[in-house]
Design a protein around this nucleic acid. Structure first.
Lengths: 111, 111
DNA sequence: CCATCGCATAACCATATTGGTATATATTGT
DNA sequence: ACAATATATACCAATATGGTTATGCGATGG
């Protein structure tokens, strides 16, 4: 079933897995060995979450399952963040000037 | 205590709150009324998570607590995603060509 | 002062998530 | 056919999360 991409990224281990995959594809066991404090089934389930979120693909070759990055969904996250990029790009960290420059939408009445 | 920014972003309601704040600062109650299906304490706790993640600031004016965006941490998330931006930017969605151009990691022997 | 507003916290509950051990399944080597 | 390899699933305990109601508390208005 489809998973929320943001939730999938909420786990630091899963983000690190994606970091590894960003360099090259890797077999499940190879990924598991990169995180010695996590058991094999533990890693397998992290990979499942990433699969269900559409963040990775699997390709079976002989006995191995090679995971690789699927970037479409990451692009969605990037699109979400893009809305905010202007804030720090323009050094407008205090926000105040930006807000004051707007036409004051008048948000007093609830609906 | 410090919160993980990615976990804070994992909740859709909290992302919508940030979307609202990206336009202008808002009082807590104003934010609450924007989500009629969530109780006042519910929203208050979402705001706490956002505070602890450093994603918002609060400014108290008379009886109201005005929340506004704090973009530093979002910039961190953006920096993380930036590493992947090249993937979809270069139309290399299938990844295969990219991987095949590499020297075959030969991952048969465990260690 | 006292009531009320605006919001946070506390206490509680249901569900989700994460991690572990044990086990299943599929593929390959002998 | 059998053992070994590679990975996934089942099951369970511990904790985290998100929501609700009840309550606390500072600030304000009468």
């Amino acid at each position: 079933m489809p998973r929320d991409v943001f939730s999938a990224l909420a786990d630091p281990t899963r983000r690190q897995v994606l970091d590894l995959l960003s360099r090259r594809e890797r077999a499940a066991g190879e990924l598991g060995r990169a995180f010695p404090h996590i058991s094999q089934p533990g890693m397998s389930r992290h990979l499942r979450v990433l699969r269900e979120a559409g963040l990775v693909r699997v390709r079976q070759v002989r006995r191995h399952r090679y995971y690789s990055l699927q970037t479409d969904r990451l692009a969605e996250v990037d699109a979400w963040i893009a809305k905010y990029r202007g804030f720090w790009a323009t050094e407008l960290d205090s926000l105040e000037a930006y807000l004051d420059a707007r036409p004051r939408p008048r948000k007093d009445r609830p609906r």
